[in-house]
Simulated scan of single mutants.
Amino acid sequence: MINVIQIGLGPLGQQIGKYIADKNQVQTIAAVDISEDLKGQDFGQLSVGETSGVLIENSIEDALENLQKKPDVAILTTVSSVKKLESQIENIVKHGIPIVSTCEELSFPWTEHPELSDRIDAICKKNNVACLGTGVNPGFLMDYLPSVLSSVCKDIDSVVVERFQDATPRRIPFQKKIGAGLSLEAFKAKEQTGTLRHVGLKESVYFLAQCIGLKLDNVTEDLNPVLAEEDISVSSMDIKKGDARGVEQISHGYVDGTCKIKMHFKAAIGEPRSFDRVTIKGVPSFVSEIDRGINGDIATCAITVNSLKSILKATPGLHTMSTVSVPGYLN
């Protein structure tokens, strides 16, 4: 049995709690969130509507004080920024607890945040534990999966990864993150603050480049709203014609002026077709497509839980999905 402490109990943390409750090999034995309104609530009641005896605390220290034994691993579902996550990681690993986190920037922070990455790696090694950033995207569909597919190639000229998804069934925080329902002016304003985008696209480019041995000399990223061509009404919101129904982001990785990696992400309410597609030009050249795509909310929770065994086997330090053992379904 893998004993877990869950830290961050928003929609994602609660959903992960539901998934763990259905598992035979994993159990949540402690839960932490900074919300004072949640303190003292039963986590089972919050996540699955059943009493679990696990009371939510506002700090790791308070949560650990009530336990007879230390958790085997922490699931950290709090922020997307690795800068904001650093102190949280340090506070966890000083207790000798390894981490699996859904922080998008943690999936491959080495290029954008090299000094911070070194600090996290060092503090994990000092405390003899491992730390992993994962998720469906980044963490799997647009980086780890194409790196695995590249294994059958003798030569690679370029890789194009596309993720198009209808955001209608996604959780409301995700819909808001991609700007669905905003006027064009409001969309542009939020874009300027950096709070409106799919986080992790560049990290996916850097991850894949490292896996296939490319030294990129330039990486670009463009972001644009996907506009509604007619009024749209879904359960979570009403979108007027001309307003944003989502976002489109494209990142290119270049070597000597030639595009070697292209990442194309599009998520919008009412998108007519969902799919995940990897196109590799090389020897051999091929296209691999997942029709209807992978539901991001389900897959993010699933891969987080399914990666627990991998991080428990990993050597101390900061890891990516390419440096831990291959995760598989955890019963």
Results as ranks from 00 to 15, higher is better:
29 I>Q: 01
30 A>I: 07
33 D>N: 14
35 S>G: 08
35 S>R: 14
37 D>F: 12
38 L>S: 04
38 L>R: 10
39 K>T: 08
40 G>Q: 15
42 D>F: 08
44 G>L: 04
47 S>H: 05
48 V>F: 01
56 I>F: 07
56 I>C: 09
56 I>L: 10
56 I>T: 14
58 N>F: 00
58 N>A: 01
60 I>D: 03
62 D>A: 14
63 A>H: 03
64 L>W: 00
64 L>F: 13
65 E>G: 10
65 E>W: 04
66 N>C: 08
66 N>D: 13
73 V>Q: 13
74 A>S: 11
75 I>K: 07
75 I>Y: 10
77 T>D: 04
78 T>Y: 03
79 V>Y: 15
79 V>I: 14
79 V>S: 10
81 S>F: 12
82 V>C: 13
87 S>M: 14
87 S>A: 15
90 E>Y: 02
91 N>H: 05
91 N>C: 00
96 G>H: 09
96 G>A: 04
96 G>M: 01
97 I>M: 01
97 I>G: 06
98 P>K: 03
104 E>A: 02
104 E>I: 06
107 S>V: 12
107 S>W: 02
109 P>T: 11
114 P>M: 12
115 E>Y: 09
115 E>A: 13
117 S>C: 06
117 S>P: 11
119 R>G: 04
121 D>G: 06
122 A>F: 02
123 I>A: 08
125 K>A: 05
126 K>C: 09
126 K>E: 13
127 N>H: 12
129 V>P: 03
132 L>G: 08
132 L>E: 01
133 G>Q: 13
134 T>F: 04
135 G>D: 13
136 V>S: 10
137 N>P: 00
138 P>K: 04
138 P>F: 12
138 P>A: 02
143 D>M: 03
145 L>R: 07
146 P>A: 08
148 V>N: 10
150 S>K: 14
